[in-house]
Amino acid sequence: MQNFFFDFDGTLADTREVAVTATQKAYAAKHLTVPAADVVASYMGVPIEVSFAKMADQPLDQAALEDLFTEFRRQYGLADDRIKLFAGMGPTLQALKDRGARLFVVSSKHSTPLKRNLKQIGLDQTFEALCGSDMVAHYKPAPDGILNLIDRFDLDPRDGVMIGDAIYDIQMGHNAHVATAAAMWGASDPAAVKAEHPTYLLESPKDLLSL
């Protein structure tokens, strides 16, 4: 493989605790029923623009949702210094770059916090480009994020692989007609990810070197 498309949350970095806590605090701050941790985790990989309405136990108009998004981002920003790069990921990414691979990030995060988070974990100079949720018309599992990068950099889909920990990442890869690799080190629901039939099952970041 030559072109590597990485999800961020649960694939490059362990963000589960921060994301769950920020979500629950946001709902509580807006006097909404707080979703259970496993429910929040099940939606990781889906943009908050989609998942937050689904996790609410009452209809929310757009103004209420925007208010909830703002509170979530505030809470996340207060704790995002706890985001940690998965063990072995740094050396693996460097080894891929050393062999000439092209590295990209495709995330459900808005590009602004995504860039901030990459810098926090020392990866701001690692990737050639990124595609955040604000850069696509359709969110995961639609293929837009990958297709955006393929079009921008004239990449061959046959040389590409989408690496992610969630079913939405694998579905997006399938929809973009690239190979898929399940990042099992970060998967919150391994059985569901395997059921999507990824091209590769990876148990640790170093397994990327065999693709």
Rank of each mutant, 00 (worst) to 15 (best):
M1W: 09
F5Y: 15
F6L: 12
F8D: 03
F8C: 05
F8I: 07
D9R: 09
G10T: 02
T11V: 10
D14Q: 11
T15N: 09
R16W: 14
E17A: 15
V18L: 11
A19P: 02
A19Y: 13
Q24E: 05
K25V: 02
A26H: 08
Y27V: 03
A28C: 02
A28K: 11
A29V: 05
A29S: 15
H31E: 09
T33H: 10
A36G: 08
A37R: 10
V39N: 05
A41Q: 05
A41T: 07
S42N: 12
Y43L: 14
G45Q: 06
G45I: 00
V46Q: 12
V50G: 00
S51Q: 07
S51H: 03
F52D: 09
A56W: 06
D57S: 08
Q58K: 14
P59H: 10
P59G: 10
D61N: 15
Q62T: 11
E66L: 04
L68N: 02
T70H: 15
E71V: 14
F72P: 02
R73N: 09
G77D: 13
L78R: 12
L78K: 07
A79D: 15
D80W: 10
D81M: 01
K84D: 05
K84G: 00
L85M: 11
G90R: 15
P91S: 07
L93C: 09
L93S: 09
L93V: 04
L96Q: 02
K97A: 10
K97G: 12
D98L: 12
G100C: 05
A101Q: 08
R102M: 05
V105H: 11
H110E: 13
S111V: 13
S111R: 14
S111Y: 11
T112D: 15
R116S: 15
N117S: 15
L118F: 12
Q120T: 07
I121C: 01
I121W: 00
G122T: 04
D124N: 15
D124Y: 10
F127H: 05
A129W: 05
A129H: 12
L130A: 04
L130I: 07
G132M: 14
D134R: 04
D134I: 08
V136M: 01
V136P: 02
H138C: 08
P141N: 03
P143H: 01
D144A: 04
D144H: 06
G145R: 00
G145C: 01
G145N: 02
L147C: 14
N148G: 00
L149Q: 11
I150K: 13
I150N: 08
D151M: 07
D156A: 10
P157W: 13
D159H: 11
D159C: 06
D159N: 13
D159V: 03
M162E: 05
M162W: 07
G164K: 08
Y168F: 14
D169T: 06
D169A: 02
Q171R: 09
G173P: 13
G173A: 14
G173K: 13
H174K: 13
N175R: 11
N175T: 09
A176L: 04
V178H: 08
A179Y: 13
A179G: 06
T180C: 08
A182L: 10
A182P: 12
D189Q: 04
P190Q: 05
A191L: 06
E196P: 01
E196F: 03
P198Y: 04
T199L: 04
Y200A: 10
L202R: 07
L202T: 03
P205G: 03
K206P: 00
L209F: 12
L211S: 11
